[in-house]
Design a protein around this nucleic acid. Structure first.
Length: 553
RNA sequence: UGCCCGAUAGUAUAAGGGUAGUACAACUGUUUUUGGUACAGUUUGUCUUGGUUCGAAUCCAGGUCGGGCAACCA
């Protein structure tokens, strides 16, 4: 019998909460700030939050944490929604922290009335100095002594646009000597005369993260508020607000964010790559963004599988990008249509083949018997891959060489008889003979060859553009590297093959968007394609045992 | 020299006082009209020192190492 999959620590908490009756059902939330595009790290959080709700019969809200109008924009709102849907998740409610601005304001007033918040006229520098350091306590200033009535009036005036940006803040009155710096009278409201993408110019004061997030969770009755480890110290403040306001006690749980080899995972760095032109945009196929991976040809299913396999824990981690590649190969192997494309053509003439042509049949996907067959034109002159031929082959080379035989995929067995070279000694043509009785499906030759090559008929070859991607950085741990991360950019992360030769079936299948170019890799149609020229992105290579063999020497 | 979080194969992640398991990676083979896929197998691990216990990855104490915390960012 199949073993029950072990639970991660958050699932354990949830199951305990459900079992002991703390909750009848759960509500989670995914709370992006609309100031950038989502990346694979967010996918982990999305799969976790939505996955948990799905698993335990609860629901998940999408809540935009839009408390900082100067960095946020509806462009990001739209891209975030598109990415989540594409990943295969649907939220119960589309919400915004800005929906709660009025309520949040009232919460702040309650704190003031309880003597737990005050308006401070200090500059940010003064506030920073008064905060002390982790090893020395901070101190309060005279503004902390203002009466509740005065604070209430001042706060109302802040809202009423009476003061300039930075001239006043509202602070929670907690403990200037706390070992947790966030509890040293944290700022909870600041003045920003900025246009908000949702509330327009209704407000000129905006709550800080710590005075918006927890309360928003509470308002929505989020049972399990799941975030990343850097918010651990915020939990004290999260709980403090809930306690003092006496509102629904949402609970925060933290897990370790995803780090992955050979890539960066911070919005700031990703934005820098875009702005400085190191990539073509947020959806550049080399980016770790969801939109980039989508464009590259990753499937939502494979990303979900990846997120499932990496697990959820609290320790720092650096996941091998090879696992992501494994997941996408695993899926694409099941669904991708097989096609033949020659990247670096070498002409091959079958000297004993009649001048006519014929149509051969080949399976669309050997892993899927329902996928059917396509026909491929075969003729006297074909292209094969230049590195599928060697004049002086090493041991264990199964491909074409003088006097050697190989099978042409779904066609015939051929034998290399002769080479044609130009003045420089470069091979320009290979002459072969074929075995008419070795035709695929009706082979009576009795000959077994080790190698099978892909090929394309010269007469029917369709030129296509191929974009081959490699890792964007040339070191594993970019996040922890010394110096500027951009020094580690892989200059050869994109290789364009402007004129590869494809079998004509590719022209008919444009609606399909996942392919395996046999023996080469998985590809998908890029949005830059036109009727004049098809453009394909290499999603991932096939595993290549021969390349490994060659490397070993 | 404060507070918080963490430490199990190369990388992740299980084992919740009782045989250290799984996946990826690596390596061997088998199958194969993709040097793909599939299948079989192999190698590699509990940070350290004490303590509790018949028995410790697990519980306790000290240490070491890694990460985080002093934005009017989230």
């Amino acid at each position: 019998m199949s073993e029950e999959k072990s639970l991660n620590f958050i699932e354990e908490i949830i199951e305990a909460d459900l079992q002991n009756g703390k909750y009848a059902s759960i509500i989670t939330r995914f709370p992006p700030e609309p100031n950038g595009y989502l990346h694979i790290g967010h996918a982990k959080s999305i799969c976790l939050n939505f996955g948990l709700a799905k698993k335990y019969g609860g629901k998940t809200n999408l809540r935009f944490d839009d408390t900082n109008p100067v960095t946020e924009d509806t462009e990001y709102v739209e891209s975030i929604k598109e990415d989540i849907r594409w990943l295969g998740f649907e939220w119960a409610n589309e919400l915004y922290a800005s929906n709660y601005f009025e309520q949040l304001y009232r919460f702040a007033v309650i704190l003031i009335e309880k003597g737990l918040a005050y308006v401070d006229d200090s500059t940010s520098d003064e506030i920073a100095i008064q905060k002390g350091t982790p090893t020395t306590p901070g101190s309060r200033n005279k503004y902390a002594d203002r009466t509740a009535d005065e604070n209430k009036r001042l706060f109302a005036e802040m809202r009423g646009s009476k003061y300039e940006d930075g001239s006043k803040v509202l602070r929670a009155k907690i403990d200037m000597a706390s070992s947790n710096m966030l509890l040293r009278d944290p700022i909870i409201y600041r003045i920003k005369h900025a246009h908000h993408h949702r509330t327009g110019d209704d407000w000129c004061i905006y709550p800080m993260y710590d005075f918006a997030h927890g309360q928003s969770d509470s308002i929505e009755h989020i049972t399990h508020s799941i975030c990343t480890m850097e918010f651990v110290p915020h939990r004290d403040l999260y709980d403090w607000c809930i306690e003092k306001l006496d509102i629904f006690p949402s609970r925060q749980y933290e897990f370790a964010r995803l780090n992955m080899t050979y890539t960066v995972m911070s919005k700031r760095k990703l934005l820098q790559l875009v702005n400085e032109g190191h990539v073509t945009g947020w959806d550049d196929p080399r980016m770790s963004t969801i939109s980039g991976m989508r464009r590259r040809g990753y499937t939502a299913e494979s990303i979900r599988e990846f997120c499932d396999r990496i697990g959820v824990a609290k320790r720092e981690n650096l996941i091998d990008v090879g696992l992501l590649e494994f997941c996408v190969r695993e899926h694409l192997n099941r669904v991708a249509l097989r096609r033949m494309v020659v990247f670096d053509p070498l002409k091959l003439v079958i000297t004993n083949y009649p001048v006519t042509e014929e149509l051969l049949s080949s399976e669309n996907n050997p892993e899927d018997s329902d996928s059917g067959h396509r026909s491929i034109p075969f003729s006297r002159e074909i292209y094969i891959e230049r590195d599928d031929f060697m004049e002086a082959p090493p041991k264990k080379y199964f491909r074409l060489a003088p006097g050697q035989m190989v099978r042409l995929k779904s066609a015939y067995i051929i034998r290399c008889e002769e080479l044609v070279k130009d003045a420089a000694g470069t091979i320009t043509e290979i002459h072969c003979t074929y075995l008419p009785e070795s035709k695929s499906g009706s082979d009576t030759s009795g000959i077994h060859v080790k190698g099978t090559l892909h090929w394309v008929s010269v007469l029917h070859a369709v030129p296509v553009e191929l974009r081959l991607y490699d890792r964007l950085f040339n070191i594993e741990d970019v996040g922890n590297a010394e110096g500027d991360f951009k020094e580690y950019i892989n200059k050869n992360s994109l290789q364009v093959i402007p004129n590869a030769f494809a079998e004509p079936a590719l022209l008919d299948d444009q609606a399909e968007d996942r392919y395996q170019f046999i023996r080469k890799g998985y590809f998908s149609l890029d949005k830059d394609s036109s009727s004049a020229k098809l453009v394909f992105n290499r999603t991932v290579t096939l595993k290549d045992a021969w390349a490994k063999e060659v490397k070993k020497g």
